[in-house]
């Protein structure tokens, strides 16, 4: 599934004000990609992702889903079935008496019934690491924050969307739950889903993404691989965006005479590069100090 934005502009018009949320955006999310979007609060990220499943349509420009214009009602309806949208704090959408019932909502709306429906619910729960027997009959409102997040996620993937949009999937979670959720997202990506993720964690973005879109005040600032985008540390800082922790360290060290590659985000890779550099400069490793 390929989603293309062509010069998309979106303007909100209200009686007392007009706001241009998106300005002339042109880019595409390719089939099977892990595509991340970064931007300061209010930069238009939320407006942008709502164009992906047709909740919003452009004021000017086009959004094409596999070549078809999303302003067509039928295309929009079809797209909504193929795109799963996980909003911020998705546990807000939980409403049913049991977890199984809530997860069944989307596939049931898509027309599934009986054993097919049951299978979809079971699969979704497996995909979010929730044991069916333990959780199916539980009330969603009595679960922990991390569990509720996963039930909400299951509720979205139960209709087997080809593309999954996640708006800050780890917001408000503690470190363990954060890792659990990102593990699930990566697994879904490995299984073939296209992922569009909005995130404030530059480390996550660098680690997992194929490409990153940096938004500033509704306009596209950078688009490219994490390496390309995060090499613009200064410009990113100006618009209140950070870079991965390791990148920051690399930039500082390079400013003091090191010559480390700019595309490092991983602790191990960083350590390799630093160790190699130090050795190259003649600083001996511990096990060579005693002499050859």
């Amino acid at each position: 599934m390929r989603i293309a934005f062509e010069q998309v502009t979106h303007t909100y018009v209200a009686p007392s004000f007009t706001e241009v949320a998106l300005k002339d955006l042109t880019f595409a999310v390719e089939q099977g990609e892990f595509f991340s979007i970064i931007g300061h609060t209010g930069s238009g990220k939320s407006t942008l992702i709502q164009h992906i499943n047709g909740l919003l349509t452009p004021t000017s420009g086009r959004v094409l889903v596999d070549g078809e214009d999303i302003t067509d009602k039928r295309v929009r309806a079809r797209t909504r079935r193929r795109v799963g949208m996980v909003f911020q704090y998705p546990e807000k959408q939980l409403f049913a008496k049991t977890v199984a019932e809530d997860v069944a909502f989307a596939p049931r709306n898509a027309g599934l019934t009986g054993p097919e429906l049951d299978a979809a619910v079971r699969l979704a729960l497996i995909q979010v690491d929730l044991d069916y027997d333990e959780f199916a009959d539980a009330s969603p409102f009595e679960l922990s924050g991390g569990q509720q997040r996963r039930v909400a996620l299951a509720g979205v993937i139960a209709s087997a969307p080809e593309l999954l949009v996640l708006d800050e999937p780890t917001a408000g979670l503690d470190p363990i739950s954060r890792d659990e959720v990102m593990d699930i997202v990566v697994r879904l990506h490995d299984e073939g889903k296209t992922i569009v993720m909005v995130s404030h964690s530059m480390d996550d973005v660098a680690r997992f993404s194929d490409r990153v879109l940096a938004l500033n005040a509704g306009e596209m600032l950078f688009l490219g691989t994490p390496g390309e985008v995060f090499s613009h540390a200064t410009e990113l800082r100006v618009v209140n965006l950070g870079v991965p922790h390791v990148t920051q360290l690399v930039n500082e060290l390079n400013a003091h005479g090191f010559a480390l590659p700019a595309t490092l985000y991983d602790v191990e890779a960083f350590a390799d590069a630093v160790a190699d550099e130090l050795e190259r400069l003649g600083v001996p490793r511990r096990d060579t100090q005693a002499g050859a």
């Binding site: 709502q50 499943n53 909740l55 909504r80 079935r81 795109v83 799963g84 949208m85 909003f87 998705p90 807000k92 959408q93 939980l94 409403f95 049913a96 909502f105 989307a106 709306n109 898509a110 509720g155 979205v156 209709s159």
Partner: peptide, 28 residues
């Protein structure tokens, strides 16, 4: 928005269907 994205429709069907359709909005 979240329920619409899960395929909910709020303006289809007879009165009973529409009433049931209100639960995913009101309960949360």
């Amino acid at each position: 928005k979240a329920q619409l994205s899960r395929g909910a429709t709020f303006d289809e069907g007879g009165p009973i269907r529409r009433l049931k359709g209100v639960f995913p909005l009101i309960v949360p």
